[in-house]
């Protein structure tokens, strides 16, 4: 068996003395692992950094084998953000979440396109906004999309201020007023329904929102305990930037 594709390196582990097992989020085959002979060596180290865009050729005797990858670098992204602690944390969180959340060998073309947009935005100033939206896209692609378009109680599209932690649907401030469950609602950052400026405070609230559903919806579905440590570090960094 043999196929060629391109993708983003999301994980790399050394295997034996000189090989590496890598996970690549490919455009048409989703997250796909394979062995890179010589991938643990010095020559390949700059190429096999998380976030790298690779052209890959996968070969195996049968479909269900681990198989071997031949990789060609297309774009090195890690080096562009290594000097920026926040953007580097963003890169680590993105690749760690992809490795954590994506099922193996299942195509997610829409999420792949969103991921490329995010990774390409990382060296720029507004990447936290891209990242916050990307986490919601990840949830949606995994089948846990939030409904932030209209109020779950009244159907109103104006005045949306909260999200129900149980249903993942938006609620207006008016509908929540005086209700005994109002204190349990999650704040809905304005930029997620077309208003707001994506300020650091709004980004932090957006990450708290997506973090809740990643932890309470997606993690149990994947039978995983907790979220990747890299995401927690990113949230902590961006939270501090808000202060």
């Amino acid at each position: 068996m043999e196929w060629q594709d391109e993708g983003v390196l999301v994980a790399m582990r050394r295997h034996g003395e000189s090989a590496a097992i890598i996970e690549v989020f490919t455009a048409t085959r989703g997250r796909h692992a394979g062995l890179v002979p010589g991938g643990g060596g010095r020559r390949m180290a700059p190429v096999l950094q998380p976030g790298a865009q690779l052209a890959v050729t996968w070969r195996a005797r049968t479909e269900d084998h681990l198989g071997t990858y031949r990789v060609e670098p297309m774009q090195a992204r890690a080096a562009q953000v290594m000097h920026d602690a926040d953007a580097l944390a963003g890169l680590s969180a993105t690749t760690a979440l992809l490795s954590w959340a994506l099922p193996e060998r299942e195509a997610h073309p829409a999420l792949y396109a969103r991921t490329l947009e995010l990774l390409d935005a990382l060296p720029g100033p507004d990447w936290p906004l891209h990242y916050a939206l990307w986490e919601l896209a990840l949830l949606a692609d995994m089948g846990f999309g939030l409904d932030l378009e209209r109020c779950a109680l009244t159907g109103a599209t104006e005045g949306l201020a909260f999200v129900s932690p149980r249903s993942g649907r938006a609620v207006t401030a008016a509908a929540a007023a005086g209700q005994p469950w109002a204190a349990k609602l999650l704040p809905l950052p304005a930029f997620l329904h077309g208003d707001g400026d994506g300020s650091p405070g709004e980004i932090a609230r957006a990450l708290a929102l997506s973090g809740h559903f990643l932890e309470h919806w997606l993690a149990p579905a994947l039978e995983r305990r907790g979220l990747p440590e890299a995401r927690a570090r990113l949230v902590s960094r961006l939270g501090r930037a808000r202060v």
Binding site: A45, Q49, P50, G51, A78, A79, M82, A85, L88, A89, L91, S92, R233
Partner: peptide, 13 residues
């Protein structure tokens, strides 16, 4: 000069 190495460097700084 790896993602992990530089993440650690920023953390220590």
């Amino acid at each position: 000069t790896t993602v992990d190495g530089q993440t650690t460097a920023h953390y220590i700084a």
